[in-house]
Amino acid sequence: MPLLDRTGAKPDVWTRSEAAAIDNLSHALVDWDALPEALRQKARDQRIGVVVPNTVGIAELKLVLRQLSLVCVTFPAYSDGRGFSLAKHVRNHGFTGTLRASGPLIADQFAYALSCGFDEIELPEASAARQPVGQWLAALERISHGYQRGYGDARNILDQRRAARAALG
């Protein structure tokens, strides 16, 4: 699956592992259900990532965040926004590793995904064919400010409007 970040396409250094079989993998990416066993097997210099459904609660995930280098949140559909909320919670709980969104997102969601804390997007082949990397980067340029607070923009549109009204008296 193609992978992109705010600069464009990038290679994926992570290897998805069947179950918890992570031997000889420097960057092992396992499913949520296989994570406990993978963490038990983890070698000293090995990096572990986990693929989590967007239905996993932060209460469960925060227990293992310190042991992870990558959290990959799955999106079953572009219209299912629970992954954005989960990403925000993961960042708010101090996760400093790589945060990846995986699924059929659309280019118009790119700026929002980054502002929620995602570092990269992993797309299904069909989505990448429909919207190539150039469209994703162009969409990122089109959206310069958000309406909501706390998504990386200190001066969101809402606060700018309130400040303008207050200045008028």
Score class of each variant (00 low, 15 high):
Met1Lys: 07
Asp5Glu: 06
Arg6Cys: 09
Thr7Asn: 07
Thr7Asp: 03
Ala9Pro: 02
Lys10Met: 14
Pro11Lys: 05
Asp12Gln: 10
Ser17Tyr: 00
Ser17Ile: 06
Ala19Phe: 11
Ala20Glu: 08
Asn24Arg: 05
Ser26Ala: 14
Ala28Gly: 04
Leu29Glu: 00
Leu29Ala: 02
Val30Asp: 02
Trp32Leu: 11
Leu35Glu: 02
Pro36His: 03
Glu37Phe: 04
Arg40His: 12
Gln41Val: 00
Ala43His: 13
Arg44Ala: 14
Arg47Tyr: 07
Gly49Ala: 03
Val50Asn: 01
Val56Met: 09
Ala59Met: 12
Arg66Cys: 03
Gln67Met: 08
Leu68Val: 07
Leu70His: 11
Cys72Val: 00
Val73Trp: 10
Val73Tyr: 09
Pro76Phe: 04
Ala77Trp: 03
Tyr78Met: 12
Tyr78Leu: 11
Asp80Asn: 14
Phe84Gly: 08
Leu86Thr: 12
Val90Leu: 11
Arg91Tyr: 14
Arg91Val: 15
His93Thr: 09
His93Asn: 15
Gly94Thr: 06
Gly97Ala: 05
Thr98Trp: 05
Arg100Ala: 09
Gly103Thr: 08
Gly103Glu: 04
Pro104Glu: 12
Ile106Ala: 03
Ala107Glu: 09
Ala107Met: 05
Gln109Thr: 04
Gln109Ser: 01
Ala113Lys: 05
Gly117Pro: 01
Leu123His: 02
Pro124Trp: 02
Pro124Gly: 02
Glu125Thr: 06
Ala126Tyr: 04
Ala128Ser: 12
Gly134His: 04
Gln135Asp: 15
Ala138Cys: 00
Leu140Cys: 08
Glu141Phe: 02
Arg142Pro: 02
Arg142Gln: 12
Gly146Val: 09
Tyr147Ser: 03
Arg149Tyr: 10
Arg149Phe: 13
Asp153Asn: 12
Arg155Thr: 02
Ile157Ala: 06
Ala166Leu: 13
Leu168Val: 09
